[in-house]
Nucleic acid binder design. Structure first.
Lengths: 222, 222
DNA sequence: CCCTAATTTTGCGGACCACGCACTTTTTTG
DNA sequence: CAAAAAAGTGCGTGGTCCGCAAAATTAGGG
C-alpha cells in the first residue's frame, strides 16, 4: 500500500473508519461467496477479528453493512458538484459530477455480475439498498440547493431523486444484461432526464394490441 | 356498505384476501397508536384473531404488512393508464393516470400527520416503504412500455422511476410540512419532470457563500 | 349428505439477530 | 503518568423468521 497521509484525524477516528470499512468489505465478500443468507453476523465479525457485539456498534444489520458501500461511494459527490465552474448549466454540472464520481473507480467489476444479480435478489437487501440511495439523495438535494442558489427546495429534492433514479436504473440494467457498459448508459439517462425524456414522448402507441406477459404486483423486482 | 359483488372468486380466495387486508390494516392501526417498535407480530395476529404463525404466512415482517397498503393503493394505476385516450401525449397520460389514482381516495388524512411522520422515522420501515414503491415502479414501467408501443425499455423504466420519485417527494413534503396539500404538489412535480425541470435550471449560484447547515451521510432521511 | 383430497391454520422448536447493561481495554488529554 | 473519555466485549433478554408435521377447514364429487 502507498504510505497513508499523516494522521490528519485523530488516531481514534482512523481506527473507527478502518473498522467500519473492514466490516463492510467482509460483509460484501462473504455475501458474494456464500450468498447473504448463509452469512451470519458472527462470521463477518470473525473475518475482521472482532466481537459480534462490536459489529452491531457499527451496523444494525448485515444488510446495512453490505449497502454501506453505496453510501461511501457517493461521499465525494458533494465536493465534485460544488467544484463545477460557475456559469455551467445545472443539469450539466450534476451530470458531470455524478459521472466523475462513478468513473473514479472505473467500470464495476464484470466478473461478479452473476453474484451481484443473485445478491440483489434478496428482499431485505433491496430495502437497505434503496435506503442507502435515499440517504445519498438527501445530501445530493442539499448540495443542489446550495449550488442552485436557494431555488425551490421541493424541486431540488425532486431533481436529486430523479438523478438517483437514473443511477439505479443504469445499475440494474448493467447487472441484469450481459454486455451493456455502465457509464455510457448512465450518461444517456441523465441527458434524457434533463430534456424531459424526448426519447419516449415521441411515440404514441400504434396499437394497444393483445396482452403480452403481465407482471403481477408480487415480489420480483429486477 | 354497498352489497358486495357476488362471489366471483372462490370462497377460499376471498377469505385469503380478507385475512391479508385485515392483517395489514391491523398492523397500520396499531403502529399509528403505539409506534411500530411497540407492536409485536403477536399483537397484530391477536387483533385479527389469528395465530402469530399465520401472520408470517401472509407477510414476512410487520414492516411489510404496514407497507402493503402502498402497493395496493396502486393496483388500479395500470388500468387507469391504459384507459387514457389514444393520441394523448405520454407525459399527460401518465400524469392524469397517477393523479386520478391518488384522488380516488381524496387528500390523505390530515389528522394522522404527526403519527405518520414519526412512523416514517423508523429505519426498517423506510426500507420496506421504498421496496413497495419499487414494486409499483416495475409494473408502471411495463405499462408505460405497452402504452408507448415498444419504446426503449430502459427509458420506460427511467420514466416510471422518476414518476415514483415525484410521488415520494410529494408525499414526504406533505407529511413533513403543515399546510401543503398533496395533489397540487404532485401535479406540479410531474409537470416539472416532463419539462426537464425548468424551474431549477434557470438559476446559477449567485455566490457559493459560507457553509450553512451541512447534513451528514448518516441516518436521518426526512 | 358424507367422504376424500387439497389447502390453511396452528403449535412447536430452532437459528439468528438487535440491543441494553455492565465491565474491560484502549486512546486521549492535562 | 494519572484520570477521563471512548470503544470493545460478554451476557442475557425479547423478538423475528421460518421449516416441519399435525389439526382444522374447505371443495368437489358420489
Amino acid at each position: 500500500m502507498p504510505p497513508e497521509e499523516p494522521p490528519k484525524l485523530t488516531l481514534r477516528e482512523r481506527k473507527k473508519r478502518e473498522a467500519r470499512r473492514a466490516l463492510a468489505q467482509a460483509a460484501l465478500r462473504l455475501s458474494m461467496d456464500r450468498g447473504l443468507e448463509n452469512v451470519r453476523v458472527e462470521d463477518i465479525a470473525a473475518e475482521v477479528g472482532v466481537s459480534p457485539r462490536t459489529f452491531n456498534n457499527y451496523f444494525s444489520s448485515k444488510e446495512q453493512a453490505v449497502c454501506s458501500m453505496v453510501v461511501d461511494r457517493h461521499e465525494g459527490m458533494r465536493e465534485a458538484l460544488l467544484a463545477r465552474p460557475e456559469g455551467e448549466p445545472l443539469w450539466e454540472s450534476v451530470k458531470q459530477a455524478v459521472v466523475e464520481q462513478y468513473s473514479r473507480e472505473g467500470e464495476p467489476d464484470r466478473a461478479y455480475v452473476a453474484r451481484i444479480r443473485e445478491l440483489m435478489g434478496q428482499l431485505m437487501l433491496r430495502g437497505e439498498f434503496l435506503n442507502a440511495h435515499a440517504a445519498v439523495e438527501r445530501v445530493l438535494a442539499e448540495t443542489i440547493a446550495k449550488r442552485a442558489g436557494g431555488a425551490d427546495h421541493l424541486l431540488c429534492r425532486l431533481m436529486a431523486s430523479t438523478v438517483e433514479s437514473a443511477v439505479r436504473v443504469a445499475f440494474v440494467n448493467w447487472f441484469m444484461t450481459e454486455g451493456e457498459p455502465f457509464l455510457p448508459t448512465l450518461e444517456r439517462l441523465l441527458d434524457e432526464l434533463a430534456a424531459g425524456m424526448p426519447g419516449l414522448t415521441g411515440g404514441t402507441a400504434p396499437s394497444p394490441g393483445p396482452n403480452t406477459t403481465t407482471t403481477s404486483l408480487g415480489e420480483p423486482l429486477c
